[in-house]
Amino acid sequence: MAQSPTARKAQNNYLLIILDSCRYDSFVRARPKVMRSLGKVEKRWSYASWTSPSHYNLLMGLLPHTSPKHVYASEYYKHDILRYNERLGAEDISFRSLVPRLNLPTFLKDSLGYKTHAMVSLPVLNPKTPLNTGFDSYRLMDKHNDMRAMVHELRFHEEQPTFYILNVGETHYPYALPQEPPDQWPRISGVHGVFKHLDDEVVGGKLLKKKDKFFDDKKLAELQARQIKAVKYIDNVVEEMFDLLPKNTYVTITADHGELFGEDGYFGHGPIFHEKVFEVPFVEGKLR
Results as ranks from 00 to 15, higher is better:
M1F: 00
S4W: 07
K9R: 07
A10P: 09
Q11Y: 01
Y14D: 00
L15P: 08
L16T: 12
I17D: 10
I17F: 09
S21L: 04
C22A: 14
R23V: 06
R23N: 12
R23T: 09
V28K: 07
V28Q: 10
A30M: 09
K33N: 06
L38Y: 02
K40Y: 10
K43N: 14
R44E: 10
Y47D: 02
S52Q: 11
L58W: 07
L58M: 05
L59N: 03
G61K: 04
G61F: 05
L62H: 11
L63Y: 08
L63K: 05
H65T: 09
V71E: 10
Y72C: 06
A73W: 03
Y77F: 13
D80K: 00
I81S: 05
E86F: 01
R87T: 01
L88V: 01
L88D: 00
A90P: 06
A90E: 04
D92Q: 15
I93K: 01
F95L: 15
R96L: 12
S97R: 10
L102H: 11
L104W: 01
K109I: 08
Y114L: 06
H117I: 00
A118N: 05
M119C: 02
M119K: 14
L122D: 14
P123L: 05
V124S: 14
K128S: 09
L131S: 13
N132S: 14
N132C: 13
N132Q: 12
T133K: 11
G134V: 07
G134F: 04
G134E: 11
F135R: 02
S137C: 10
S137L: 03
H144D: 10
H144W: 07
A149G: 03
L154D: 05
R155L: 00
R155I: 00
H157Q: 13
E159A: 08
Q160E: 11
T162R: 06
N167L: 04
N167H: 14
V168P: 07
V168M: 03
H172S: 02
H172Q: 02
Y175F: 15
L177E: 09
Q179W: 11
Q179E: 15
Q184H: 08
S189K: 15
S189Y: 13
G193I: 01
G193H: 01
K196P: 08
K196W: 12
H197V: 07
L198A: 14
D199L: 10
D200Y: 13
E201D: 13
V202T: 14
V203I: 08
G204S: 08
K206T: 10
K209W: 09
K209E: 10
K213M: 13
Q227P: 14
V237G: 11
E239M: 08
E239F: 07
M241R: 09
F242A: 10
L245F: 05
P246L: 07
Y250C: 00
A255I: 02
D256K: 03
H257R: 05
G258C: 01
L260H: 06
G265C: 11
Y266S: 03
G268H: 03
G268W: 04
H269F: 03
G270N: 07
I272Q: 09
V277K: 00
F278W: 02
F278Y: 12
P281Y: 05
P281E: 01
V283L: 09
L287P: 04
